[in-house]
Nucleic acid binder design. Sequence first.
DNA 1: AATCTTCTTTAGAATAATTATAAACAACGA
DNA 2: TCGTTGTTTATAATTATTCTAAAGAAGATT
Lengths: 136, 136
Amino acid sequence: MTSKQVFIEKLRNSSLRPTKQRINICEVLFNRDKTFHFTINDLFNLIKDKTGDKVSLATVYNTVHAFHKKGYLKEIPINSNQTYFDTNVTDHHHFFDVKEEKLIDLKNEDVGPIEIQKSIPGKKIKSVEVLVKLED
Amino acid sequence: MTSKQVFIEKLRNSSLRPTKQRINICEVLFNRDKTFHFTINDLFNLIKDKTGDKVSLATVYNTVHAFHKKGYLKEIPINSNQTYFDTNVTDHHHFFDVKEEKLIDLKNEDVGPIEIQKSIPGKKIKSVEVLVKLED
DNA sequence: AATCTTCTTTAGAATAATTATAAACAACGA
DNA sequence: TCGTTGTTTATAATTATTCTAAAGAAGATT
Ligand SMILES: [Mn+2]
Ligand SMILES: [Mn+2]
Ligand SMILES: [Zn+2]
Ligand SMILES: [Zn+2]
C-alpha cells in the first residue's frame, strides 16, 4: 500500500477530507524516519520543493493547526518570533542549538526520570519536559 | 537609603542614564520579594497603575531589552504570541499553569539534579531547564 | 549658568507572524 | 448529477514587535 493511501485513510478517520493539499503536507511531514522540527515557513517552502505543488500559506496554517488539534503535531514555543512544530507528539526532551536555531530530540533515557517534589493545590502535572540549550 | 537611590546607582554602573522612566520601571520590576514573570503589556499597564506616570510602549520595549542585555532580566518563550520575562535571571525551573497562563518558579531542590547522558560534538551545554505544565 | 554632546523618549510608521473573511472550489452523500 | 458541507485561496485585518526621526533630558565642558 502506498503512503498516499495511508494518509487518505488517516485523514478520513480524523474527519478531515483528504484533499491534494493535505496529502502533500502529510507526505512532507510524515514520510520520514526521524522526527521533524519545523516552522510554518519551513514547511511552506518544503512543500513547493518536494512536491512541486504550491499550497497557499493560509492552507499551511490551517492544516498545521488542524493536525495539531488532532494530536498529530506538537507545538514548541522556543523562539520568540516563530513557533516551532514537532512531528514527535510524545512528551520528550530537547537540545536547542542556540546558534543554529535547531531542535534535537533527546531520548528519555538520555535524561533519566525527573521527580517533581512540589505541588500546587488543585493542579496536577500534565507534562515534564527538559530543554537543554547548547552553545559552541 | 531609598530604593530609588539604589536604582540610580545600578543604572549608572550599567552606563544607562537614570531617567525617570527607567527608575519607575525599576520600582515596578525590582521592588518585590518574589520573582516576577511578566509580558511587556503587563509591565506597560503596571507602570501606569503603580507609579501614576505613563511611559510610552516603545520605552518599555527599549528598557526591557536594555535590562535583558545587561543580564537583569531573563527571556522565557513559553507562549506562542507574547514573550515572557523573568526577574529571576538564574537558570531555574518552572511550573506553567496552562489555564491561567502563569509561570511559577521551582527551586532547584524541588526538581533535583539532571544528568544529560548525550552530547553533540562541538557543542557544550549552556543551560538545563525543566518546564512542568499544570492542568486542573 | 550657558553651551555642547550624547543618550533617551516618544508618537507614529513599518515589519512580520498569524488569523479572519468571504468567494471559488472540491469532496461527499443522496 | 445535484445539493450540501468542508476546504482552499487571495487578500485584508490583527497583533506583537521594531524602526524612525524629531524633541527632550542628562552629563560634560566651559
Ligand atoms: Mn522533538
Ligand atoms: Mn522564573
Ligand atoms: Zn496549533
Ligand atoms: Zn531581549
